[in-house]
Amino acid sequence: MRLDIAEHDALIVVDMQNDFMPGGALPVPGADTIVPTLNRYIERFEERALPIFFTRDWHPKTHLSFRQNGGVWPEHCIEGSEGAAFCEGLHIPSDNRFIISKGVSEEFDAYSGFQGTPLAALLNERGTRRLLVCGVATDYCVRHTLLGAENLGFRTLLLEDAVKGVDLHPGDCDAALREMMRKGAILCRYEDIFDR
Rank of each mutant, 00 (worst) to 15 (best):
3 L>K: 12
8 H>A: 12
16 M>W: 01
19 D>Q: 09
21 M>C: 08
22 P>A: 06
26 L>T: 04
27 P>N: 03
31 A>N: 07
36 P>C: 09
40 R>T: 06
46 E>W: 09
47 E>T: 11
48 R>D: 15
48 R>V: 07
60 P>H: 07
62 T>N: 09
67 R>G: 09
67 R>I: 12
68 Q>M: 08
69 N>K: 09
70 G>W: 00
71 G>T: 06
72 V>D: 14
73 W>H: 09
74 P>C: 03
76 H>Y: 02
78 I>Y: 05
86 F>T: 14
86 F>A: 03
90 L>N: 01
90 L>Y: 08
94 S>R: 13
97 R>K: 12
98 F>I: 00
99 I>T: 15
101 S>H: 12
102 K>Q: 00
108 F>L: 15
108 F>W: 04
113 G>Q: 04
116 G>S: 09
127 G>Y: 15
131 L>G: 10
133 V>S: 12
135 G>A: 02
135 G>M: 08
136 V>H: 06
136 V>W: 02
138 T>N: 04
141 C>Y: 06
142 V>K: 05
153 G>N: 00
155 R>L: 14
156 T>E: 00
159 L>E: 06
159 L>R: 06
168 L>I: 09
168 L>M: 07
171 G>C: 12
171 G>D: 15
172 D>Y: 05
173 C>L: 06
174 D>L: 04
183 K>A: 15
184 G>Y: 00
189 R>Y: 04
190 Y>V: 05
195 D>H: 02
